[in-house]
Computed example of a mutant assay.
Amino acid sequence: MTVRPDAGRTTVTRMMSRDEVLSVLALLRAAGTDVVIAGGWGVDALLGEETREHRDLDLLHVREQEPAVVAALESAGYTETLDRRPVRFVLSHPSGPEIDLHPLEFAADGSAVQSSFDPAEPFRYPAACFVTGTIGTTTVRCVSAEQQALFHQGYEPAGRDVADMRRLREKFGIETRF
């Protein structure tokens, strides 16, 4: 469990376990939705091991599948707690875990675009950035190490971000900002 400040108040968030991540992925797969893991769990999937605790699960989803994604998660007790659409939104479980959802618009070539808070600068995902990794013994879809490095730009990194990028540099030989 971690305590973190949030807009002038303090919230308590229980970490999201590997079993919970796999349960959410199975639930969404059963609902016929396509999701891709990003963020900290995405880094761990690329590395093939859990390297740290995670307070949330970042998922990229097909924008047109959003109603099915939300319905499946609501059936498991999640409720929307933050709406920053079209960029992102968060669903939280009463027991603490959070899922940070990022809607993507896919092109015919397999690339995708995600809205950003600056409409002139959307987040771009080349088709090649959608790869696979493992969580436990389960193969999962995630974003590539290079794409992870791109998303870790433009902000002051937390210690976990610095450690994640170091691990990706060591395993994949990529360049990162920090």
Rank of each mutant, 00 (worst) to 15 (best):
R4L: 05
P5E: 14
P5A: 13
R9C: 01
R14E: 12
M16R: 00
S17I: 01
V21G: 04
A38R: 01
A38S: 11
G42Y: 06
V43S: 00
D44G: 14
A45E: 01
L46E: 01
G48T: 13
T51N: 02
R52K: 08
L60F: 15
H61C: 14
H61I: 06
Q65P: 02
V69S: 07
A71H: 04
S75A: 13
S75V: 06
G77S: 11
L82G: 06
P86W: 11
S95E: 09
G96D: 01
P97I: 12
D100T: 09
D100A: 03
L101M: 13
H102Q: 10
E105K: 03
E105A: 12
A107P: 02
A107C: 05
S111Q: 06
S111K: 03
A112I: 10
S116E: 08
D118S: 12
D118E: 13
D118H: 13
P119E: 12
R124K: 12
Y125C: 00
F130N: 00
V131F: 15
V140R: 10
R141P: 02
Q147A: 04
Q148V: 15
Q148Y: 09
Q153M: 08
Q153Y: 05
G154E: 05
G154N: 11
P157L: 04
G159P: 02
R160L: 04
D161C: 07
V162W: 01
V162K: 02
D164N: 10
R169V: 15
R169P: 06
